[in-house]
Design a protein around this nucleic acid. Structure first.
Lengths: 182, 182
DNA sequence: CCCGTTTTATGGTGATCACCATAGAATGGA
DNA sequence: TCCATTCTATGGTGATCACCATAAAACGGG
């Protein structure tokens, strides 16, 4: 049983995991509450906006986590291409370790919650923009001539690879994706 | 009211549209039946396997349709790159015309039905393999040295672009995707 | 210790979910 | 026309959906 003030964190954390596995509409509130271990009666106290508000916070949390992965991959990379390969490898590692179940958290929300929820759509757009801007920053620092476009290409390939790897259950798409950005 | 023997087609056709818009778990059987206009009482006669069987047929139908688009784009293309741009343009046109709502039918099923349904997973894998093989065939015919890999790259970029364009509501991702395959 | 605030427990609401049993209607070949 | 097959109509099943009203419990500053 989690400490009282941690209940909200547990809800969001569980939501991130379950949304990634089964999609926004594939997970019920009851399941999230049960898995999180947080008290059922407190859900609508912490999330007056209900499931949609929970998904917003889940998007932000997952967004921050991947943002950290981005920095981690590029901070020690001698070239942009090295950073791209490093990030693709990291994500492929985690994805394979989950038996190809934990997809991109953003994709999970895009399918089934966009464009129905205006607020959630905006949050998702913000998260993707943060990823792109952050990556473009690293690209510029590493001497790439067109950092914004290279970053955009990278995430197109990364999202596509994340989806196809789920079907093929192979990390081949990630390898190809990394090689495409160059 | 559709002619009796057309009921099944109507169900599948409607399922393709609605799955693309709201995802597999975002659409209920009642809605599909209502929108299709086909007789409600006949659903489980045509689809003893229920929603999952309907989704299988929807995947196959959508697969065939996009396969036709692929051939259509490449058949008159002087080079592989021209075919890639042509297909990306066609899909971007349709996507924009739907106000960025009709996503990739395969993506809609991958999120929320994989890996829960083994049969559906297999069908999706078959459809993607057909697209790749078909595209590789065109690539080879057009003198590409590594047709299989180029086709794989293309669909990684295409799926990623289809997803990101839904968030950005712009065809820019498709343009970038096409330029990445070269 | 008291009191106001934050958090949790309980027990539901109606709606919708996928699914199905049974029976009647339509159809087309013999 | 008769019959077998194919299709449709009706009216549900229990389960789960997101959500909430009410009240008790835990907490922390004064």
């Amino acid at each position: 049983m989690p400490r009282p003030s941690d209940a909200k964190k547990h809800f969001v954390d569980t939501a991130v995991t379950l949304f990634r596995r089964k999609g926004y509409n594939g997970v019920g509130l009851n399941e999230i509450i049960a898995v999180s271990g947080a008290p059922k009666g407190s859900f609508y106290h912490h999330f007056p906006g209900g499931k949609e508000e929970l998904a917003e916070e889940a998007a932000r949390l997952a967004g921050h986590r991947i943002a950290r992965l981005i920095d981690q991959a590029f901070i020690d990379a001698p070239t942009f291409a090295d950073g791209v390969h490093a990030l693709a490898d990291i994500i492929a590692d985690w994805f394979e370790a989950s038996d190809w179940r934990d997809g991109c958290p953003v994709t999970a929300l895009v399918i089934g919650a966009i464009p129905d929820s205006t607020r959630l759509s905006a949050v998702v757009a913000e998260v993707l923009e943060d990823w792109a801007a952050r990556t473009a920053g690293h690209a510029e620092r590493l001497g790439v001539s067109d950092p914004r476009e290279r970053a955009a290409r990278f995430f197109i390939a990364l999202e596509g690879a994340w989806l196809l790897a789920r079907v093929q259950r192979t990390r081949a798409p990630f390898k190809l994706a990394a090689s495409m950005v160059l």
